[in-house]
Nucleic acid binder design. Sequence first.
DNA 1: ATACGGTACGAACGATCGTGCTGTAAATCA
DNA 2: TGATTTACAGCACGATCGTTCGTACCGTAT
Lengths: 201, 201
Amino acid sequence: MACVPRRSATAVAETRAGVLDAAVRRASVDGLEGLTIGRLADELSMSKSGLFGLFGSKEELQVATFEAAVEHFTREVWRPVARREPGLPRLLALVDRWLSYHQRRALPGGCFVTTATIEFDARPGPLRDAVARARRRMHAALEADLRAAIDAGDLPASTRPADVAFALYALASAASTAIQLDEPGARARARRCMRGLLGAG
Amino acid sequence: MACVPRRSATAVAETRAGVLDAAVRRASVDGLEGLTIGRLADELSMSKSGLFGLFGSKEELQVATFEAAVEHFTREVWRPVARREPGLPRLLALVDRWLSYHQRRALPGGCFVTTATIEFDARPGPLRDAVARARRRMHAALEADLRAAIDAGDLPASTRPADVAFALYALASAASTAIQLDEPGARARARRCMRGLLGAG
DNA sequence: ATACGGTACGAACGATCGTGCTGTAAATCA
DNA sequence: TGATTTACAGCACGATCGTTCGTACCGTAT
């Protein structure tokens, strides 16, 4: 890829980005704990210590990888629908975008955020804090659009935004799992369920 | 527990059960990959090789642990409501039982089956087969009761049993995560969502 | 009474884990 | 241009991984 000794500022950024890209892909399959500095270095034809020095510790590598994955998700799912009008239209577009993110296997191991969340939800530490933070951010964004939809009269006033956000998130995660397990019709099923929550057929 | 050298048929079964009990507890926190023969042996004051010999390989230990966890779940959630009349009444009872299984932290790491499913859904092998099988069994049981509820007129005829089963499962898994992350009101929220699916307030 | 199967042990295997140390050469700053 | 910083490589470390070995013992079948 790059000849061995090259360290300009942009080259370093490229190295880091390349490492994180590979780390996200690997960890989506094996989990953040299954991530290994040695294997990652091999895949990138780097030395273990070189890669290690880039992050300082395995935990920092894990945190950086998780944040790169969140960024990936945001870029692939959230950003493309950001310009739609807030409220129900954007939510419906988001659902489609979200499910096709899973369906086309944007990451080989399915929804990274869900994987990491389940992996660390019972183990205190920086990783658990990071996944909790990402989850809250996701929920808040969903709730904001749900409230907009209620205000616009597109959803009944009795709708509880937090409940629907929770359910949408749950269904999207489960859709990823079902797709990974090759269950036929998983995406269509999840789509029906999610649209049902949003009052659409 | 037992004095060191004793190997009657029942003593062996006790050893095995003790190992699997500890393995389920540990793996619910660290995942089935995080399970380690050495640490498990230490916790039980056994030798690594003794424990190892009981299963033959780590993969067999993982499979046995997963099956023990499924058995645990069946015993704690499914069996207690088995005598209720099939259909909607049993489904409503199951929802409560299911959520309190998570809420009272019957296993320290939350829903084991969900953890294992996410851990292995992208990695072909005996464990992926096992989780897929457990998931199908769970779905089939839910669908059977959903159909009974439809036949009894407790749910509208337009209800799609497979969709509702998928959603119930998704919500229960997400509830476990939310509880593990100490989100306030998680259990009540999940209960509202799940009962909503079953047409109950 | 004797042979056998399987449980469990202690010691050790090679591999790999995360993490330090040291050297070096390029990028950066004076 | 010279001094400083730093991104990497190379090597080595102690720990731990899953696994194998040889051995001893108990329970059961012969």
